[in-house]
Amino acid sequence: MRIKALTIRILRQIIRDKRTVAMLIFAPMLVLTMLHFVFNGDDYVPKVGLVDVPQPVLSELDLSSAEISEYESEDTAKEALSKQELDGYILFKNQEPFIYLEGSDPTVNGETMRWLQSVFKPLQNTGVNIDLEVTYLHGSSEMGQFDYFGPVLLGFFVFFFVFIIAGVSFIRERTTGTLERLLSTPLRKWEIVLGYVLGFGIFAMIQSTLVATFSIYVLDMMMEGAFFYLLIIILALAFTALTLGILISTFANNELQMIQFIPVIIVPQVFFSGLFNLETISDWLSWVGPITPLYYAAQALRDVMVRGYGWGDIYIEIIVLFGFSLLFIFLNVIALRKYRKI
C-alpha cells in the first residue's frame, strides 16, 4: 500500500519531467547510432588449437605470435572453443586443413584469420591445398565490430542513465527535505528503498525495451537469442544501477557531487566489462572486472545477442546481478539509519 503510493508518486514525477524522459530514451539511441558508424579494430594474439596436424606439415609451420595448444580429437577442441578457451582450431581431414572459429568477436576473427594465412603461406609450395575452409561456431564473416560491442554498450547506457537519474532524484529528496518528511511518517526504511526500486524499475524497463528494440530493429544489431532473455538481463542490470545510484547518492551532498562519481563508479566498469578485450588487461588489475555489475551483464548480453544462448548459460550472471541489487538495497537501508534510527 505504502510502497505502491511511493511507486506511483515516482512514476508521476518522472512523467512530469518530459525532458529527462526524452533524454533517457533518445540519448542512448543517438550515441548507439553514432558508434554504429564509428567502430574500428585493433591488435590481438589469437589462441589456436591444432587437431591431428600431420608431422611433416607441423614442422613447416611458423607457430610464433599465437598461443598454440594441441588436441587429440576434434571433440575436445570443440569444447575448448565453446568455452572460449580457443579462438579457433585447425583440423586436417585427408591432408586438407579446415578452420573452425569461435566467431563472436570480429576483431578476434580477423586476427586469427590473418595469422592462419601467414602461417600457411610456406605450405603453398608443398602441394597442400590452402583453400581454407572456415566454419564459425558463432557469428559469421559478415559480423561487424558493432555487433560485438553493441550488447556491452546497450548494457552500459541502461546502467549509466538509470544510475544518474535514480541518484539525482534521491539527492533531491534529501536536499528538499522530503526524505525527512517521509521519515516522519510511519513509512519503513526498506519500504522507501523498495518504492524507489519499483518506481524507477518500471521506467527502466520501458526505457531499455525501447533502446534495445531500436538497436536491434533499426540499427540492425546482431540478435541471435530470445528478446525475452535480453529484457531479463537488462532489468536485472537496471535494478543494480538503481540501487547503486541511490546508495552512492548518500555520499554526495548535491547533484554536482553525484556527477563527480561518474569517473569513479561508471567509467572503470566500461573498461572491465568486455568492451576492450579483458585478456589484454594487466594481471594486477584483472580482479576489477568480476566485482563490477556491468561485467556480468555484458557477458550475459553477449551470450544471448551474439551467441544465441538461452537460460542455462545466463542464469548465473542474472543471479549475480540480483545479488548485487540485494546487497545494495541492504546497504541503503543501513545508510538511511543516518536519518532515522528506527
Binding site: 500500500m1 505504502r2 505502491k4 503510493a5 511511493l6 506511483i8 508518486r9 508521476r12 514525477q13 512530469r16 519531467d17 528538499t176 527535505g177 522530503t178 525527512e180 518528511r181 517521509l182 511518517t185 510511519p186 513509512l187
Partner: peptide
C-alpha cells in the same frame, strides 16, 4: 517538503497513503 512537479492533490494523496 513538497514535490513541486506534482499537483497539491497528488502530494496530499501520496502522504495520505503513507499514513
Amino acid at each position: 517538503a513538497l514535490y513541486l512537479e506534482l499537483s497539491a492533490k497528488e502530494n496530499i494523496e501520496f502522504f495520505a497513503s503513507l499514513y
